[in-house]
Design a protein around this nucleic acid. Sequence first.
DNA 1: GTCTATAAACAGATAGAC
DNA 2: GTCTATCTGTTTATAGAC
Lengths: 217, 217
Amino acid sequence: MEEPKLTTAEEKADQSLRAPGTKSEQTRQRILNAAAFVFSRKGFSRTRLSDIAKVANMKAGSLYYHFSSREELTAEVMSLGVNYTFRTVQNRLENLPPQTDSITRLRTAIETHLLCLIERSDYARANTKLSGQVPRNIQVRYDASEAEYGQIWRKLLRDAVADGSLRDDVNMSAIRMFILGAMSWSVEWFKPENGPAASVARDFSEMVLNGLRAQDR
Amino acid sequence: MEEPKLTTAEEKADQSLRAPGTKSEQTRQRILNAAAFVFSRKGFSRTRLSDIAKVANMKAGSLYYHFSSREELTAEVMSLGVNYTFRTVQNRLENLPPQTDSITRLRTAIETHLLCLIERSDYARANTKLSGQVPRNIQVRYDASEAEYGQIWRKLLRDAVADGSLRDDVNMSAIRMFILGAMSWSVEWFKPENGPAASVARDFSEMVLNGLRAQDR
DNA sequence: GTCTATAAACAGATAGAC
DNA sequence: GTCTATCTGTTTATAGAC
């Protein structure tokens, strides 16, 4: 279901997505994978526990041996999703050479985030799709992570404005949301037929960065 | 609930949103407005008929005098939403001077579409938010309108590439979805505190158009 | 651990009084 | 036209056999 092709650094960050030894743990994992798969495609209201169970090759009632409620299962999928994207982007940024310029850092973040969504992870897609659809008590659980993740983006943009790479005469807070939103919405439309993920990601980052680049005038 | 500030041309296009004479029609309208209001904020699964009824100052059961089912009500809200945005954008484009250049046309479409979402219409927001959340049998009803609307955008971009205003070396189909997606996602975050709608819209269109502009080199 | 069968909960839909 | 009360259907959740 998931073919992450992760680098070593990310494999470590991604341990939570892997099944430890026991059979029970593996099944739990299979259920989570199934849930991420279905949620990312159908959203919250169109997803029944029986849909998830079917993909996981079991009956709906059996899910309760592994999860106490639908809410619990949903929350865990979402949590894995935010964390996956968060850590993957953070990792890529940390692995860049120390003096990497602010534009390259931004480009890296954009393309990595987008690739998580369109190419890598049902969890990332599920989290994005579910955000804004799930009951409030689920949503609040990961609001903090989302906010923390947002800080990375704030900083990336702030730094690029500060060093003169990006123009300083725009509402960067709104622009940040447009950038993240454009990527989020990819969950609704991206399919492999739309082209190689890497090239789609590159076209997007080019548009954004050229569009915001400070003019020398 | 709705303060459209429409030009004459758009008022005409917007007749369906206005209440004709009878009391029953007015109530029906009040319910639709309430539904658009709630749906646009809570999405499909978090919205109960009782929530809509409350905003419309009535009890849930009474809704059935005006609508045969939740599905019917939802479908009508969505239909009004697509049509509103569709016609508003189309109208603005038609009212441009005939020789308007392709970039200005594109900018007009982008800013108009975005303003429909962030400033003007609960119906536009509801439709956007609900898309991808509602049951399939509702979704299919307006798939055709959405596709037709997409054609406007295809043409705008195609024309701008054809006359050399926009670069021709990108996957314009993906770019189109990124642009529309960025705007769609505004439903999730835009609040008046984010700044004047017109200026936010301008910042966005500037980024996009500068980002895609053909380089003279 | 997973199944089948069943209970409980909920929200949409209907009936009939006013 | 709108209300209250009730019914129905669906889905989550539980019990108990295997």
